[in-house]
Design a binder for these strands. Structure first.
Length: 484
RNA sequence: GGCGAAGUGGCCGAGUGGCUAGGCAGAGGUCUGCAAAACCUUGUACAGCGGUUCGAAUCCGCUCUUCGCCUCCA
């Protein structure tokens, strides 16, 4: 089976093979850390998390680099642009570095909650100033960049392919409706800064051959990607809104410097919308993850995200989140039921489900279909288990394996299985189990004596305590109420 | 002005020429002391108008509408 990925550069699905057999290099644009992460970040990083998980599942060794942008990008390209991290630092009356560190930790907390695996390398922009300065030097030496008054600009005219990713190849046509008035010392309005001279009040600045200043917006990704993954990488991912100018600039800088293809597969995830409008920090409609997690299971948010395709926009509403939460609970029930089932006689063939799941993932990471396969599987296995003869030990094992592999390992929505308790935890859990056994036994007695008032009271009171009782053919089962 | 994406049943959301997507919600049912869970049954869906075709939600054209990018942004 072959993996096909939609390549934004080619605007079509292409069969994926890594440059070096068995090893995949992937770079994903990380967050600028000047605020808490929102649902848009979640969509992007959950999407690429699944990409990485599926590549690993497919047998590749994946080297995954995701940067942290801790240099404030400017709010615009004119000279009076503000540094967003610095702005936030002034607002919170503290140091830019403290802002960056604080929100970096916050970011990872949220990603951990969402079950997003940490990247192999998470480089900081501020930790790679020398590399960026080197890149600027190379670009000046090769005639792709020029210095004016301490600022260094990339000359778009020197790179004929500029704009090929976004389709913005005619630079003159771009000027007509441009939103930003250009009035700098650039040779061409489309030229972009790769080094900026710092103003008096600027806090984050470094010494360079051209001025004491800071690197341009797009430079860090090129520098760090090439440093850790090489001059040509397999996959570069990011949000749609970064196609232009960010990614087109990266291509120009990188290929201008090396003369080699920068990225083989470009992947762009679509936006999260609220009432059909893009969610964004500056738009004041962003849904903060920490707030969302107060009322909602983070893995249900992950599940909600994966129920749509990464290249489709995802419309947020609490109703949609609730629907997803209920749906996910159904899959969790199935997993629990499988784990608790005792082997029987009938055979159950998991192969068709494994096959369909795999095909969906190989088709440009089609998680909505992959999830639909899990629901189909859930229905089928429940039907099989409803029959009195049960399913064989081997079938049961294969089913649990599929659930673990697809639901936990690849999609990461079902969460790890029963964790093996240890130490004090073990004692507490063992005791709880014994206590529950006793309660369930007493309740069973009450039910046998038709004392339903008592049995219902036990069940209701336990629910208040966060433990749910269900009566099944094999007797009562209990579970910690999720989301409680 | 330029570049691009999209309009699917009450809601979310796949699907790109003929074959049930899936989930949630609703209705009816099986099971159950009652719940819960599970299962079964149940929906004249594809923005509009033309065209291509034996056949179109799916291809082509036009119209309408929405959204993204062209400023930092996942």
């Amino acid at each position: 089976m072959a993996l096909f990925i939609y390549n934004s550069l080619a605007r079509t699905k292409q069969q994926f093979e890594p440059l070096h057999p068995g090893i995949v290099s992937i770079y994903v644009c990380g967050p600028t850390v000047y605020g808490h992460a929102h649902l848009g970040h979640a969509k992007s990083y959950v999407s690429f998390d699944v990409v990485v998980r599926w590549l690993r599942h497919s047998g590749y060794r994946v080297k995954y680099v995701q940067n942290i942008t801790d240099v404030g990008h400017l709010t615009d390209d004119a000279d009076e642009g503000e540094d967003k991290i610095m702005k936030q630092a002034l607002l919170e009356k503290t140091d830019p570095m403290e802002i960056a560190q604080f929100y970096t930790r916050s970011f990872y907390e949220d990603m951990d909650s969402l079950g997003v695996l940490r990247p192999s390398i998470a480089p900081l922009a501020t930790g790679h100033i020398p590399e960026q300065i080197e890149l600027v030097k190379t670009l000046i030496a090769s005639g792709h960049a020029y210095e004016v008054n301490g600022n260094v600009y990339f000359s778009v005219a020197s790179f004929p392919g500029y704009g090929k990713l976004s389709g913005r190849t005619d630079q003159e046509a771009q000027q007509a409706g441009a939103r930003v008035e250009v009035r700098s010392d650039k040779r061409h309005p489309s030229d972009f800064a790769i080094w900026k001279k710092a103003d008096e009040g600027h806090l984050m600045k470094w010494v360079s051959p051209w001025s004491t200043g800071y690197p341009g917006w797009h430079l860090e990704c090129s520098a760090m990607s090439m440093k850790y993954l090489g001059e040509t990488i397999d996959i570069h991912g990011g949000g749609m809104e970064n196609r232009f100018p960010h990614h087109d600039c990266e291509i120009a800088q990188s290929e201008g410097a090396t003369g080699k293809p920068y990225v083989r597969f470009w992947m762009h995830n679509n936006m999260v919308t609220v009432d059909g409008i893009k969610m964004g920090k500056s738009l004041k409609n962003s849904v903060n993850l920490k707030e969302l997690f107060r009322e909602n299971d983070p893995l249900a948010i992950r599940f909600f995200i994966l129920q749509s395709h990464y290249r489709s926009p995802l419309d947020f509403s609490l109703a949609a989140i609730r629907a997803s939460t209920t749906g996910l609970e159904k899959l969790r029930q199935t997993r629990k039921r499988l784990n608790e089932s005792t082997p029987g006689a009938a055979l159950f063939d998991t192969a068709p489900f494994v096959q369909r799941f795999s095909e969906a993932m190989d088709d440009d990471f089609n998680t909505p279909i992959a999830i639909a396969v899990l629901f189909d599987f859930s229905k089928a296995i429940n039907t099989a288990l409803d029959r009195s003869e049960g399913i064989s030990e081997e079938s049961l094992k294969a089913s649990i394996d599929f659930m673990e592999s697809a639901g936990t390992e690849v999609l990461g929505i079902i969460g790890p299985g029963e964790t093996v308790p240890h130490g004090d935890m073990l004692q507490t859990q063992t005791r709880l189990s014994r206590v529950m056994e006793i309660l369930i036994e007493l309740r069973a007695d009450a039910r046998r004596q038709k004392n339903f008032a008592l049995s219902d009271t036990i069940r209701d009171r336990l629910l208040e305590a966060g433990i749910e009782i269900k009566d099944t053919k094999e007797g009562a089962s209990w579970s910690n109420k999720t989301g409680a």
